[in-house]
């Protein structure tokens, strides 16, 4: 098998092992019901992580997604108060996400600022803007939200896919097409693999960078929409720290933080692993939330070290 699938296989193996562990420890754990719940609960993180995958594949990082989730939520809730139909505000906010991401990408490339710093400013800007829009949690009361919550696609075995999970899976498919079947996707891998060479090979760096962060912004805004619909409210602190969970999901999904190596599909499993851990700990009941944090960190550690040695065995620099 081609080496490039190894990290993804490792991710899937860990996911299955965790899931089986759950089945071994708890009755009724091995079911599509639990699986469907994990998918629905973590849909917004996985969506944000899909966007982050593109950014990380290009060798960059996007810290602004967590704040984007909060900002999109409060704006949606306030537009709801102003009588907007959620679909209209969703459309506007997705466009906003794209434009905001594109602007970040443009500044990163034009001003040669490290993505880390630029998106950090983006994090502050969006979080601060959320506070300016509203300091409290604002409910979204439009009947559309309740309708969305009623969407259930039954799965064999008694489980179901909620609307958030469906949106997540569709956006995952779109992302896979974008990453592996478009020139843009190849350019992302090229820039992450070797930026200078990519430039000499004719990859339009600025256009691609702008598009990468626009994709990140789009998925960040979509994650915010899903989160707002899921909680039927907008809260300015929503999504705090989500940028870290998203990055963790991408890493657990087998994408190298150095860029250039990884697969979008892995991010789904990375996000699911994070979801499984918290589900397992909540199922247990005797452990508190400190353990969710610590065990995610521990798994992240194991994965990072594993990647380190797995990738060390690749010969990516082919020196004679």
């Amino acid at each position: 098998m081609n080496e490039k699938y190894w990290p993804l296989m490792a991710t899937i193996a860990v996911f299955i092992a965790l899931f089986l562990t759950g089945g071994f420890l708890f009755k009724n754990f091995l079911s599509t019901l639990v699986l469907g719940h994990i998918l629905a609960d973590n849909a917004f993180i996985i969506i944000a992580a899909i966007g982050a995958t593109f950014v990380i594949l290009s060798g960059g990082i996007d810290l602004s997604v967590g704040s984007m989730i909060g900002f999109v939520g409060v704006v949606m809730a306030n537009l709801d108060l102003a009588g907007w139909h959620p679909l209209a505000s969703i459309a506007i906010l997705l466009i906003f996400g794209i434009l905001f991401g594109a602007l970040q990408g443009f500044i990163i490339d034009f001003c040669d600022i490290q993505p880390f710093i630029m998106t950090l400013a983006g994090l502050f800007l969006l979080r601060g803007s959320s506070f300016m829009v509203s300091l409290d949690s604002v409910p979204i009361r439009h009947p559309f939200v309740a309708e969305v919550a009623r969407v259930h696609v039954p799965l064999p075995g008694g489980g179901f896919l909620a609307a958030s999970a469906i949106v997540m899976l569709i956006s995952l498919l779109a992302a896979i097409l974008l990453a592996h079947y478009t020139r843009f996707g190849s350019n992302v891998y090229a820039i992450g693999g070797d930026r200078k060479s990519a430039e000499l090979m004719g990859v339009p760096i600025r256009k691609t960078t702008v598009m990468i962060y626009a994709v990140g912004g789009f998925y960040g805004a979509l994650a915010g929409v899903i989160y707002a619909l899921y909680t039927s409210s907008g809260y300015p602190l929503a999504g705090t720290g989500s940028e870290l969970s998203a990055i963790a999901a991408v890493v657990l999904g087998g994408t190298l933080l150095t860029g250039g190596v990884g697969m979008v599909a892995g991010t789904l499993f990375g996000g699911m692993i994070l979801g499984l851990i918290s589900t397992l700990i909540i199922f247990d009941g005797s452990l508190n939330s400190a353990w969710i944090i610590i065990s995610s960190g521990l798994l992240l550690f194991i994965f990072i070290v594993m990647h380190r040695f797995l990738v060390g065995s690749f010969n990516l620099r082919g020196r004679a």
Binding site: S186, N187, Y189, G193
Partner: peptide, 18 residues
């Protein structure tokens, strides 16, 4: 040599002209 080491030969050969 200006190629992307981690990308496959085919992808390198056809980058920007797929």
């Amino acid at each position: 040599v200006n190629l992307i080491p981690a990308m496959s030969v085919a992808k390198n050969m056809t980058l920007q002209r797929q």
